[in-house]
Computed example of a mutant assay.
Amino acid sequence: MVDWDLAGRTARRLVGPGPQTTREEAAAVVRELHEAAATAVAHVEGLTGLSPVPGGPVPEVAVVDRPGWVDANTQGMSALLDPLVDALAARQDSRPGPLATAIGSRATGVQAGGVLAFLSSRVLGQYEVFGTGGRLLLVAPNIVDAERRLGVDPSDFRLWVCLHEVTHQLQFSAVPWLKDHLEAQMAEFVEATDLDPDVLRDRLGDVLRSVLDAARGADGGDDAGLMALVQDPAQRAVLDRVTAVMSLVEGHAEYVMDGVGPDVVPSVRTLRKRFAQRRKGRGPIDRVLRRLLGLEQKMKQYAEGRVFVGGVVDLVGMEGFNRVWEGPENLPRIEELTDPARWVERVHGRPAIPA
């Protein structure tokens, strides 16, 4: 369905070069990011109370440029999505011929390449869950570009970013069932999929109208972007579960990167204030693409997940919060994200009383 090789080539042609640095400056950035990632591990483990499963694989830390991020994500998306697409195609009553398949895969490859090019200049870091068996990516030119635009201390900012990404690394290395759970949810999503071209066309029209509103600077509307195409109740139920999990892991990382405090990152409060402004987007094109890709929904995940984690820790402490990692049944439900006391009562079996 997607020509991932073409997607990668397209993205590499479209991606911007990044900020200007000398060879010596670039080498120093790479070295400091590796050091910051190593330093972050002890702080994250100390604050969360989590530790990797003994004998598990040692996650790799890779400092990459924008094309390197593109290559990693084309491989990861192919490893995740191709088996699901094959399963979906096998359920269809009729299949397109070889020519139609080739044309369609190239068209979607170009589209996917455009999306990857857009994201490659914005992503600061990423923990690869699928495809590589676990690898932490730090996108050096984007980190340098962000710290320059924000006017913040580079060493503080680099450690602050690493705290976020190392938290994701720890989540999946300390809770090995989490990856399997997400893969199972994706498979269930495909199982619930029933494509009807006419219905899909109508839904796409709604999405495009929402995108045009974003271009005009209008507030409100559906921020789900292309995810708004998913309206089947069974799919929505799966999507709600996945959204709750992703809100949890993102909110947990947000909690950690702020929770270490000024003793570890002296300018942490300044970083949070200025970084929050950065997440609001830049110009009309940025707003359009953020709406289309559902990135506004991503920002909502950060906010709601942060509220959930902080609320639960306030009520039952970090040890009580860590019961969330005991099994899928303890993961928050989507309605609990904004009402942590409901999760505490369900999982701990008692009404939530502030500590």
Rank of each mutant, 00 (worst) to 15 (best):
E32K: 11
V44H: 09
E35G: 01
G46K: 10
E25R: 03
E35Q: 12
T10L: 04
V15C: 03
A7C: 02
E32W: 04
P17Y: 12
R12C: 05
E35P: 03
L33P: 01
E45N: 02
A7N: 08
R23T: 15
V41I: 09
A40L: 08
A28M: 03
A28R: 10
L50M: 13
H43D: 03
W4R: 06
A38K: 05
R12T: 13
T39E: 14
A7R: 01
G18H: 06
V29P: 07
E45Y: 00
A26N: 09
G18V: 11
E32T: 12
E25Q: 07
R23C: 08
P17F: 10
G18W: 06
A40E: 04
P17H: 11
P19C: 02
L50N: 13
L50Y: 12
H34W: 02
E35F: 04
L50H: 07
A27M: 04
V30P: 13
P17G: 12
H43Q: 07
G49L: 02
A38I: 02
T10D: 03
V15S: 05
G18M: 10
A7V: 02
L47P: 09
R23P: 09
V44K: 02
Q20G: 15
R31S: 08
Q20F: 15
L6Y: 04
R31F: 01
H34C: 03
L33G: 01
A36D: 05
G16P: 08
R31M: 04
